[in-house]
Amino acid sequence: MQQLAKDSTHNNWSQFLLAVVTVLTVSSIIVTFYNTMVLRNFVVVDDLDEAVAE
């Protein structure tokens, strides 16, 4: 019985962790998407001329 109760507490905490990781991951993906695809907030190294020269 005690073991069962312990297992079930572990399960609850594990599920909570999984939920936290999922929420954070999805948020992070959304922020990354907004940052790159919408705001285009990144550095573009214009090395086209160098590439042509090479």
Binding site: W13, S14, L17, L18, V20, V21, L24, T25, S28, I29, V31, T32, N35, F42, V43, V44, V45, D46, D47, L48
Partner: peptide, 26 residues
């Protein structure tokens, strides 16, 4: 599970920053 979460957190949280990707070469 806690260890795995702790290890994954920096990656998840810093994903949109320059610690992940710095720039892109045209």
């Amino acid at each position: 599970n806690i260890t795995v979460t702790a290890l994954l957190l920096p990656l998840i949280l810093l994903l949109p920053t320059i610690y992940d990707l710095q720039d892109v070469h045209l």
